[in-house]
């Protein structure tokens, strides 16, 4: 049904679109090895790995990485717990308010980040809570729940309910059924959802700015760097590392759920 001409046109446009998606990523890769100290001129005059060693001497970078890893780890754990509980609660259950509940789960990512950020900030302020790691983590966990929830729900829909009934028929308790039948089936999707939640938290900036105290997370560190032209080469190196660090969990998560 496809004429040759139109299919070549579609193919060309599609590949152009994909190239567009990777162009800025390629630029980051190139500039991380740039010899120049303060200019962005293209094409680069030469290539070096010097900046990687310079960056490795900077304590502030490692501190920021540490903050981000901690926040991402804890908020992922919270999201795993809340997201899987919510998914199990809504699975094969009908109750009044079910739609409202799912809407509320989605809201933190459907509404702009400034709304979530400012709501949390104004509440923390009026409750006299000092912003810091804990407030950042709470915010991150909240919008990560839906990521885990989506992954678990997608998996639950594919588990045949017969095996659950069989487990009960064979005399297993509800907890035994959960532990031996449902959980092993959820393992990969929990892990995949957790990885995505981790990547999302590790990278989040908009809500973080409102909930952060004096601890610069890695994205905050990068944002601050943009007003410091002297540090450009170091910034470039960190940008490349951040990019690779967020790609890894996403690839792994895809690989875990690809059979779906």
């Amino acid at each position: 049904m496809h004429s040759d001409k139109s299919s070549w046109l579609i193919k060309g446009l599609a590949l152009a679109g994909i190239c567009f998606l990777y162009f800025p990523i390629l630029i980051i890769l190139i500039y991380a090895f740039n010899t120049e100290e303060s200019a962005f001129s293209f094409p680069p005059k030469g290539f070096t790995v010097e900046w990687f060693f310079k960056a490795a001497e900077r304590d502030d970078i490692f501190q920021a990485i540490g903050f981000s890893l901690q926040i991402a780890a804890i908020s992922t754990l919270i999201a795993l717990l809340l997201g899987s509980l919510a998914a199990l609660a809504l699975y094969r259950n009908n109750f009044p308010g079910k739609n409202v509940f799912t809407l509320i789960l989605i809201l933190p990512i459907a509404l702009p980040g400034i709304v979530t950020g400012l709501s949390l900030l104004s509440t923390f302020k009026s409750a006299g809570i000092t912003p810091g790691m804990a407030t950042i983590t709470i915010g991150h966990a909240t919008f990560c729940v839906v990521i885990v929830y989506n992954n678990v729900v997608a998996r639950l829909r594919r588990i045949s309910f017969n095996i659950v009934e069989a487990s009960y028929d064979l005399g297993a308790t509800a907890l035994q059924t959960f532990w031996h039948v449902i959980l092993p089936n959820l393992g990969a999707s929990l892990f995949a959802g957790g990885l995505l939640a981790f990547a999302l938290s590790f990278d989040e900036l908009i809500v973080t700015i409102f909930t952060a105290g004096h601890e610069p997370t890695l994205p905050l560190w990068l944002l601050n760097q943009l007003s410091r032209p002297r540090d450009v080469p170091i910034t470039n190196v960190v940008a490349l590392l951040v990019m690779l660090l967020t790609m890894l969990p996403v690839l792994l998560s895809y690989w875990l759920t690809k059979d779906r």
């Binding site: 990523i25 990278d203 900036l205 967020t246």
Partner: peptide, 10 residues
């Protein structure tokens, strides 16, 4: 999924 701030910076 790649870092938002890195893309903007790029």
């Amino acid at each position: 999924w790649t870092s938002y701030i890195v893309k903007a910076y790029s």
